[in-house]
Amino acid sequence: MLSTLKLTLVESLRYRGFLGQWSWLAHRLSGLAVLLFLIIHVWDTANATFWPEAYSYTVEIFKWFPFSVGEIALMAAVLYHAFNGIRITLLDFKPDWWRYQRQSAIVVWLLFAVVFAPIAISMFSRTMNHCNTLAAEGLSCWTFPTP
C-alpha cells in the first residue's frame, strides 16, 4: 500500500500532462485537505455541547499563529475545490464544452487567484492584529495555548 502511494505521488509529479493534470491533482489534494480539517472541526465543535470546557480550550488552539496560517491554506483549498468543482460539473453535463477544457482550467485558476488574494490579505492582517493584541498584553501568538 505504501509503495502504491509512493508510486502515485512520484508518477503524478513525473507525468508530463497538460494543465488539466494539475487541476486534477489540485482538486484531489485540496479535497483531502478539506476533509481532514472537516473531521477535526466537526468533532471539535460537537464538544461545545458535550464537553464545553474542552471546546473553550481547543478553540484557543485554532488561534495559535501556525494554525491561523493553516486556515488561510484551508480557505485556498475550499475556494479552489469549489471553483474547479463547478468546472467539472459544467463539463460533465455539457460535453460540447469539452473543447474548452484547457481554457476553462485557466479561467478557474485565474478566478481562484482573484478571489483568494484579497481574502488571504484580510485573513493574514486579522491574524497579525490578533498577534499585536496579545503582544500588547505581553503574550505571544506563537505560544501554544495550555488548558
Binding site: A48, P52, Y55, S56, V59, F62, K63, S68, E71, L74, M75, V78, L79, I119, S122, M123, R126, T127, N129, H130
Partner: peptide, 16 residues
Amino acid sequence: HMLLQHILRDVHSLTL
C-alpha cells in the same frame, strides 16, 4: 460558512 467565519466575523474572537 468560510466567508462568514473569516470575513464577516473573525475567528480570532470565536469563543464558546
